[in-house]
């Protein structure tokens, strides 16, 4: 009995230490997700009678189709570019180990510090023929006016390149790190069997780091889907009207704060949450990425979430 009481007391202290995190998790993770769902059926200007038609109304909004095309176009460039380029660069860095390559890795990480508002400023300059640090390249392509570049149909490419430069360096380093986890014995065995650098990369290294590639893909996909800052600043601060409600998050923001339609904005947020959530569940339950947590994530949990 005394032992039981002792354990109860211990767990009380443990709960107390866990409580600050749990409160944050509940109030800023779980509760807003519930509130977002509850907000959807409330009556608004767009959904006068209220109800779950909010989903239908937001999908039929005249800005939804263009936003979908923009985001799909952006993701169609950004996600594959990230995955193939990052993996390619990491594999190239891993071919031959030289001390001077640490300087290359340091250089690759520098653009990661240029994101959001700073990225908009820097890319405005890079693509401005009179100011650009790559004037020669722009001249080569006969670009003499910034208006030749800053056009609505070019935004998917410009934003994909901006996002790519902000994210690629970090991931090159991380995937390079994942390649370092491959045991020397495996690489030795491949060499003894006569595998070339290319064969080793494709047949040995890539399969061994596949879980990290899935992890990266899910995070890159989920992050890309939520693009907001860059088109919002371009639209409001530099080229007025060039990217109005360009992305889903901008549309969601405009629905909420320009039209007061929080139900529609929440419906859009929940729609966007679904692919991110599925991606998260894929990484957690279908890869052994979080192998440290394996002991605590059992088959039972997998069945609960229906995967």
């Amino acid at each position: 009995m005394a032992k039981k009481q002792h354990y109860k007391h211990n767990n009380g202290a443990m709960y107390l230490m866990l409580s600050p995190y749990l409160l944050l998790l509940f109030f800023f993770g779980i509760l807003p997700a519930i509130m977002g769902v509850l907000e959807i059926p409330k009556p608004s200007m767009a959904n006068a009678n209220g109800g779950w038609d909010a989903f239908k109304i937001v999908i039929h909004d005249f800005r939804f189709g263009p936003a979908l095309r923009h985001v799909l176009g952006f993701m169609g460039i950004f996600v594959p570019l990230m995955i193939f380029f990052v993996i390619g660069m990491a594999l190239m860095l891993d071919i031959k180990h030289s001390p001077w390559k640490k300087w290359l890795r340091m250089a690759y990480i520098v653009p990661a510090s240029i994101s959001g508002a700073v990225a908009v400023l820097v890319w405005y300059v890079i693509l401005q023929p009179t100011l650009s640090p790559i004037k020669g390249v722009l001249r080569y392509f006969h670009i003499t006016e910034s208006s030749q570049i800053w056009q609505q149909q070019n935004l998917v490419y410009i934003l994909a390149i901006m996002a790519f430069f902000a994210a690629a360096g970090n991931w090159i380093l991380i995937q390079y790190g994942s390649l370092q986890s491959i045991s020397t014995e495996v690489l030795e065995a491949a060499r003894v069997d006569g595998a070339s650098v290319w064969q080793t990369a494709i047949r040995i290294k890539l399969p061994l780091i596949s879980k990290y590639i899935v992890y990266m893909s899910v995070l890159v996909f989920a992050g890309g889907l939520q693009i907001f800052v860059e088109p919002q600043l371009l639209n409001g601060g530099i080229y007025q009207g060039i990217a109005d409600s360009w992305s889903f998050d901008q549309l969601s923001y405009n629905l909420a704060f320009m039209q007061g339609d929080f139900g529609g904005a929440s419906a859009l947020s929940i729609l966007l949450l679904i692919p991110s959530l599925l991606g998260a569940l894929l990484v957690i339950f279908k890869t052994d990425m979080f192998e440290g947590a394996q002991g605590h994530i059992k088959k039972k949990d997998v069945e609960i979430v229906g995967i």
Binding site: P32, D249, L277, I297
Partner: peptide, 27 residues
Amino acid sequence: FKRTFLISTLIMMLVPPVALVIPLFVE
């Protein structure tokens, strides 16, 4: 509920924080 905490944490970790920005504003 240790496993539940851990799974909630992993899900929250992989979902971008901006996904909940509108409901967070309402809250």
